[in-house]
């Protein structure tokens, strides 16, 4: 299986460790994996809030680029917001030839075209279904037997398109986490919303949502995420939220490929572990034990 990699803007900035660890893990798992040359922003949530056509044209450009550079390759996307934006165009243009024609009218100026065959895959989808626990288990060097991990899926890799998991009760991370020997933290917050961009524009509301998730994770050694926005919301405001509700809500938050990479013995530097904002001293101690 060959993949065209779409990192997206966050992975070049605030989520660099997600980029590093995705590359390191895919390398270690032997995935054939190449970045799309000249990819551009998918529009995030802003394009949809300003112009509907723009919100489709921006992802469409990247689908067309990927097709031009690697026909038949799946497009691998680690960021859930980018994933949904690209997936939406895949789904809509497959069902709606008129829309495809309209987008092609925009793309033709850059010598690009959509053929309706692009297949957009979330990193979690690829890890869970193409790679799978069986591929990871024999590569484990540092079993996480003494760890309890809270899998956090967030929204947009699960909904509205139910591609690889149950959008009401997601489980796709569990076999992967068990494959490295860890326990699954029992909780029901895995598919709940972290508020996405609310932390920037509706801070108070965003804080409420994040508080509930951090409280649900109490007792786990770490939360793992598969989206830069979720990661940032869960890791960056722990002190402030803890102070507000007079509760110790500090917890380590890692990207899934970082956790799997650690278990497979990949060097912490390659996984960008020093770039995370919330790795507790307790977690580090346990890790080096």
């Amino acid at each position: 299986m060959r993949y065209r990699y779409y990192p997206g803007c966050s992975l070049e900035g605030t989520a660099r460790e997600y980029n590093l660890s995705t590359r390191a893990l895919m390398g270690a798992l032997g995935g054939d994996f190449r970045e799309i040359d000249d990819w551009t922003c998918c529009g995030a949530s802003a394009a949809d809030a300003t112009s509907h056509l723009l919100s489709l044209a921006l992802p469409a450009r990247n689908l067309a680029l990927a097709a031009k550079q690697g026909e038949g390759d799946d497009i691998l996307v680690p960021c859930s917001a980018c994933y949904l934006n690209l997936k939406k165009v895949e789904e809509k243009t497959r069902r709606d030839p008129e829309l495809r024609a309209q987008l092609n009218e925009i793309l033709i100026a850059d010598q690009l075209q959509l053929d309706g065959r692009a297949r957009v895959r979330h990193l979690l989808d690829v890890l869970a279904r193409d790679m799978g626990a069986d591929r990871i288990r024999p590569l484990v060097r540092r079993p996480f037997t003494d760890f309890s991990i809270a899998p956090y899926y967030g929204c947009q890799c699960l909904r509205p398109y139910a591609v690889f998991d149950d959008p009401e009760a997601p489980q796709s991370m569990e076999p992967l986490i068990k494959a490295i020997g860890a326990r699954i933290h029992p909780w029901c917050m895995g598919g709940q919303c972290c508020g996405a961009a609310h932390m920037q524009t509706q801070t108070e509301v965003g804080m409420e949502l994040v508080t509930a998730i951090l409280q649900g994770a109490k007792g786990a050694d770490a939360i793992v995420t598969v989206c830069p926005m979720c990661q940032m919301n869960l890791e960056a405001y722990q002190h402030r939220i803890g102070r507000k509700c007079a509760e110790d809500l500090r917890i380590s938050v890692l990207y899934l490929p970082q956790l799997l990479g650690l278990a497979m013995g990949l060097p912490q530097a390659e996984l960008g572990l020093d770039l995370n904002l919330a790795i507790t001293p307790e977690f580090r101690k346990k890790l080096s034990a």
């Binding site: 966050s10 551009t40 922003c41 529009g43 809030a49 300003t50 524009t201």
Partner: peptide, 22 residues
């Protein structure tokens, strides 16, 4: 206004650079 401005600036940045400069 606040949400709208955030989105407008975001899109302006995309238009200028192709990617977002956070």
């Amino acid at each position: 206004r606040p949400s709208t401005l955030f989105h407008e600036n975001f899109i302006r940045s995309v238009r200028r650079h192709g990617r977002v400069k956070e």
